[in-house]
Design a protein around this nucleic acid. Sequence first.
DNA 1: ACACGATCCTGACTGC
DNA 2: TGCAGTCAGGATCGTG
Length: 274
Amino acid sequence: MPELPEVEIIRLFLLPVLVGKTLVHISIRERKLRTVVDEHALAHASGHQIQDIQRLAKYLLFDFPSGHLVFHLGMSGNLYLVDPQKAYERHEHAEFIFDHNLSLRYRDPRRFGRIFWLSQKQLPQFALSLGKEPWDASLIPETFYQALQRYDKPIKNVLLAGSVIAGVGNIYANEALAYAHIHPKTSASLLSLTQCSRLLYSIRQVLSDAIAKGGSSIQDFTHPNGQKGYFQNYYIAYRRKGFPCAFCSTPIEKIVLAGRSSFFCPKCQPEIFF
DNA sequence: ACACGATCCTGACTGC
DNA sequence: TGCAGTCAGGATCGTG
């Protein structure tokens, strides 16, 4: 479900409600997620106030005085607020109860997500392991171009790996490449400065547009307030095999790259042979 | 050293 | 209607 825009939407909703609230109880109902949840470590947050909620790549960090309660939503995870009296729904694996009668529930049918604790000391190392944020001021066409020079593999694989630019998942990688008119298979090291510039612009544009439209609700993503996103109605490539290209009406094609479905217009995004 | 496939899961959808 | 097969928004690990 969630790529950067969906995670950011959750953050923006929870931020004004939860900052300043005190975490009074943690209940882990299913410890076996992508990694086993360490309840002892999470207990560092108990009894303390949330100071801020930040997003790093696709991770959500709830800042407490002694460290960070971190969520990764995997493919099907979601976080939302309910009344603590409300009966549990299927796949609600964790509950965080705050004062003012607030229950933050983590639901994740596929259990590919993670919940873990990061001490203040561990945060810098963790942040370094992630790529640059898409809107990082140091990310300009020239530095993006230089970073991509190091990768002799398809640009779409490089985007998904997240080591150059963080938070771009399969949907938005497909969309950004379509807007930038770049074939997903093009070797990252072969992109020109002009193409890199166009791609960087497209990534930022697609991500911010998705946030503005409430994200993508393909199957089950809903805003914590219960509303669905509608960015999926604006896809120009993703899941549009056989449908006409938005620019030239040529049918969109589909290939598999790094095990992920990749959609492109064969005319607007020509494959480059060398 | 790097690239790739397999893998962790459940649910929704398709076609017979 | 039922059932088998396919596919899915991510990230890590082992293998070649």
